[in-house]
Amino acid sequence: MIRGTHSKKEVEDALAYAEASGWRVKSGGKGHAWGKMYCPYNDSECRCGEFCITSVWSTPKNPGNHARLLRRVVENCTTHRHKRAPQGTRQHADKQE
């Protein structure tokens, strides 16, 4: 199913970034939500689901800030960061925890 296009360019660019990172974007929502972004990983390590589903607002007060928030959600996904990090860096980070 083809999703709709968000009316704010900055938000649409952030949604394209999320899709390129494997996230699923679904338009259509209730209330003020334009739609939702869904994490591609169904991982129990992923912050207890806090960032696994994110609402995309239809008329954000500041589209640039909302777009940055959406990108930050994608970039801060725990599983995504582990898959993206070089193998030596990931092992070093795990030892520090």
Rank of each mutant, 00 (worst) to 15 (best):
L69T: 09
M37H: 02
S55G: 13
R71K: 12
G29M: 07
K95F: 06
F51Y: 12
S55R: 10
E12A: 07
E10A: 12
I53E: 10
G49H: 02
Q91S: 07
M37V: 03
K26L: 09
A20K: 14
F51E: 12
N76I: 00
R72Q: 04
T5L: 14
N42P: 02
N76A: 10
D13I: 01
G28N: 06
M1P: 08
T78C: 07
Q87C: 14
E75G: 03
V11R: 06
A14S: 12
A67R: 02
M37K: 00
W57E: 09
A14N: 12
P63K: 15
G4D: 11
K95E: 08
E75N: 13
R81I: 06
A85G: 03
Q96G: 07
C52F: 03
S44N: 09
R3E: 06
A14F: 09
R84S: 05
G64A: 14
Q96H: 11
V56W: 01
S27A: 08
V73M: 11
K30L: 09
E12D: 13
E19I: 03
N65M: 09
R81T: 05
K36Q: 00
I2V: 15
G64S: 11
Y38H: 10
G35M: 01
R68G: 09
S58Q: 09
R72T: 05
H6P: 06
A16R: 11
C77L: 04
K30M: 11
C46W: 12
C52R: 05
I2P: 11
R72P: 00
E97W: 02
M37Y: 01
C39K: 04
F51S: 13
K8F: 13
P63A: 14
L70W: 05
V11I: 14
A16H: 07
G28H: 10
R81L: 08
P60M: 15
W34H: 00
Q87G: 13
H92P: 00
R24K: 13
S27G: 05
L69A: 09
L70M: 01
E12V: 02
V25P: 00
Y41F: 11
R47P: 12
R90H: 03
R68M: 08
K26V: 15
E50T: 08
R81E: 13
G88C: 09
K8R: 10
A67P: 02
Y17C: 07
K36F: 00
W34Q: 04
K83T: 06
S58E: 10
L69H: 07
L70R: 01
H66Q: 07
E12N: 07
C39F: 02
Q96M: 15
I2L: 13
Q87E: 15
R3A: 04
M37E: 03
K95L: 09
G28W: 07
